[in-house]
Design a protein around this nucleic acid. Structure first.
Length: 376
RNA sequence: GUGGGUGUAGCUCAGUUGGCAGAGCACCGGGUUGUGGCCCCGGUGGCCAAGGGUUCAAGUCCCUUCAUCCACC
């Protein structure tokens, strides 16, 4: 592993009742308490929020995206600022996604070979090739605190042969990413990604072989691509079995509040998901009793906050009636206030989770949480 | 006053040789999982301006009235 890496992770407290644990991650841009949720800031902004908002919602680390930032504004611009942190005015740690998922989700425009992913820009149609080496180089240029290996994510359902091919390619690419990362002496930590579709055997093979390559942290990718929740949980369990206890585990792109609680109990430390931010922009707000749609007519005269106990800026200052009005009027402020609430809700949930684990009350918390949710 | 146009869902309008009343927007619900604010799915809503006539059958054809717009006096 790179000697210059300032990355470090240690488990502070492990639950006696489940695999849940709290940990401390140290990065070049500061510490992160786990389990952690990372708000998604694809294009160098957590949509609708400024860094001050992000921090006041309780975020310690955010996510940026290699594919999107490479296409626009391009590395040359961000390099001039010494990285994404100063470019976007966010002082805290940043994890960058490699672009593997975008290659999957923008599949109309791509061609995958062993060399890398050839794709057409969704912006101007220009052709690009993203190799594992290039993915690491771009993330290095972004001065990312945590870099992700380029991987191949597949859909659900997929034939076993397709899953196997993607698994092999992801491993090969992981090896090349690591070699590049070691060679360049990048100060950020590089995480490997476990694939293997919904096949327990292939999942465990992927996990074992990724661990053999050796990374400071491990992600479980290719989940929540349309499979039933039980399937997702099972695949996480299978992968975790083979992941080292002393390294952080990150389930990519997940999920609902319920998903987070369930995955924490299975030993997962890190999450990211567009759900709180995207759904905020679509008027869906999270509470412990389920989601509410702020556009619903029942909120028209409601002078109360979105969530009674919530300490977020939005809930402390504004009513459901006002938020409904802003949303239906498509006012810019609607996006900001809704996003503040949802991001706060997710981050506060993680805080409650950590607190429960620390007090050895996590199983009780988990039970109460899922009961409240199903009531509504 | 004269000539012409237009009246169909809350709004803007389609509606074929006469054959089950339609769309977009709005409104009311639902969806959204490594992000384009997009988008997707469902639903409510009609005395087809009013009255009369022709016809097996009229939003559609004919007559009258009303409303409204334009042009010219």
């Amino acid at each position: 592993m790179s000697l210059e890496s300032s990355f470090d992770f240690r488990v502070v407290h492990a639950s006696t009742q489940s695999q849940a644990r709290i940990g401390e991650m140290h990065t070049a841009h500061g510490p992160v308490k786990t389990p952690v949720f990372m708000p998604v800031g694809t294009l160098g902004t957590v949509k609708a929020l400024c860094p001050q908002d992000i921090a006041s919602c309780g975020a310690e680390i955010i996510l940026g995206n290699t594919y999107h930032l490479y296409l626009r504004p391009g590395c040359e611009v961000i390099e001039r600022f010494g990285g994404l942190h100063r470019f976007m005015g966010w002082e805290g740690p940043i994890l960058t996604d490699s672009g593997g998922f975008q290659i999957f989700s923008l599949s109309m425009l791509r061609r995958i070979t062993d060399i890398g992913a050839e794709f057409q820009s969704h912006i101007d149609g220009s052709r690009h090739v993203l190799t594992p080496e290039k993915a690491v180089d771009i993330q290095t240029c972004l001065n990312s605190d945590i870099l992700m290996c380029l991987d191949e994510c597949i859909g659900y359902p997929s034939d076993r042969s397709v899953v196997r091919e993607a698994l092999k390619r992801t491993l090969h690419w992981a090896y090349r990413c690591k070699r590049r990362w070691v060679f360049t002496g990048c100060s950020g930590a590089l995480f490997g990604i476990v694939q293997g579709g919904m096949d327990a055997e292939l999942r465990s093979e992927s996990a074992q072989r990724t661990v053999e390559i050796g990374f400071p942290g491990y992600a479980i990718g290719g989940l929540s691509v349309g499979e039933p929740v039980e399937q997702m949980m099972l695949m996480a369990e299978v992968a975790v079995q083979y992941l080292p206890v002393h390294a952080p585990r990150y389930v990519m792109g997940v999920g609902t509040p319920e998903n987070l609680v369930e995955l924490v109990s299975r030993g997962i430390d890190m999450f990211d998901c567009v759900m709180p931010t995207r759904n905020a922009r679509n008027g869906q707000l999270f509470t412990d009793r389920g989601t509410i749609n702020i556009s619903n007519a029942c909120h028209r005269f409601d002078t109360g906050p979105v969530d009674d106990g919530c300490g977020c800026y939005t809930c402390r200052h504004f009513s459901r009636a006002y938020l409904r009005h802003l949303y239906l009027s498509r006012e810019i402020l609607a996006y900001r206030l809704n996003t503040i609430h949802n991001v706060y809700y997710y981050l506060h949930l993680m805080e409650r989770i950590r607190d429960a684990i620390e007090r050895d009350q996590f199983e009780a918390f988990r039970k109460t949480f899922s009961e409240h949710r199903t009531e509504s």
